[in-house]
Design a protein around this nucleic acid. Sequence first.
DNA 1: GTGAAAACATGACAATTGTCAGTTTTCCTA
DNA 2: TAGGAAAACTGACAATTGTCATGTTTTCAC
Lengths: 211, 211
Amino acid sequence: MSKAELKKVSDTKITKIVKKGEAIFSEGEKLNGVFCVRDGVSKLSKLSPNGKDQIVKLATQGAVLGQRSVIAEETSNLSAVAVKDMEVCFIPKNIIEETLNSNPDFAVEVLRHMAHDLKEADDVIVNMSQKTVKQRVAEAFIYLRDNFGEDKEGYLSLTLSREDIANVVGTATESAIRIISDFKKLGLIKTSGKMIGIYDEKRLLEMAKGH
Amino acid sequence: MSKAELKKVSDTKITKIVKKGEAIFSEGEKLNGVFCVRDGVSKLSKLSPNGKDQIVKLATQGAVLGQRSVIAEETSNLSAVAVKDMEVCFIPKNIIEETLNSNPDFAVEVLRHMAHDLKEADDVIVNMSQKTVKQRVAEAFIYLRDNFGEDKEGYLSLTLSREDIANVVGTATESAIRIISDFKKLGLIKTSGKMIGIYDEKRLLEMAKGH
DNA sequence: GTGAAAACATGACAATTGTCAGTTTTCCTA
DNA sequence: TAGGAAAACTGACAATTGTCATGTTTTCAC
């Protein structure tokens, strides 16, 4: 089963609407299938012992949620909550398992995909531990632009709350807000309400790399 | 090919000795196979832009290194350096690929393994971003004890330099050293040269969770 | 054994980041 | 569209962490 075939399967399945703020699944939940994202954006986060949510990944169109847990036959280690109204479809566990066992190509494709996720996770670890909050915020904006695009006025298409930005970056909401203000004063970005637009990509990139 | 069969294959291969401090492979290198750890311990680390090394994982007996890169057909995103004399064996890429394509069970097993690694990576991300350095150091000692054991005098079997400890935890070497001194003063651990032993596991665990 | 290099340790200080306690703005619903 | 809740913002301060400079101990090759 190729990606195209998988898509075909997912096309035939009934899709479900998930409104912004609603959960698709929660940490610790046993999943009996995976979810394909047809539209919208979901944040995948994990609650830390101190009560804060760390966002580990943002998933959009084409992403598959819950794969890891279904394959490892474990409860989910992450929660999935929509940050933009979503359309998702569900593929039951047994279909996944059957296909995995019968079709090596499919397994290898999933494997490749997971290998890629693992590399990304390694990169996040290094960023988290070796970069300053300011650098991580700068990087986050570039990431959001590259992955979700911007509208005609130059604002990021994906609008996250300040709290969500802080949770992506792994810092206190107040710190994130302060840094956003600083960036605005420095002319690196512009804001309008909660929307954020990149003005000076070059300097923002320099900032992300550290001066 | 089951894990046992894989082990058999690896047993027939010529093993190589890697001395403490020597590299098995480096970041950016193209790998034409994977390495099975027969004995010893390797650190998997990634250089951050500011020149510091972040240790992402410690691999010991039974671990397979380079899997991710071979599967994704990418250069390695990590360096592997021995922190304790090692014995490793090499399995060429083409054998891995053939087996992956012909044997669904093998692919599924590798998949499971990678799913597990991915979960661990998510946990590390949360720890890095949401815990204090002190909490992370405490956690590191417990991790080292649980995964590598301790000798009869109660010292951790795996002795890392203070610098390596700092690189696991993602902090400055001086900060790590200071915290180790504090823990010693508090009676949580004992030290003898660079060796470290856990005295009060309960309080160390409390420390790791945050008070 | 001995001397040099590396690793460990400590002090002083500055920079970063978090917390708490508010005020202002925005957004949504009735 | 008014009113109330949630989100965004700001200031003051404390805690954490990094940096630099320096002294001490350990390690290891000769």
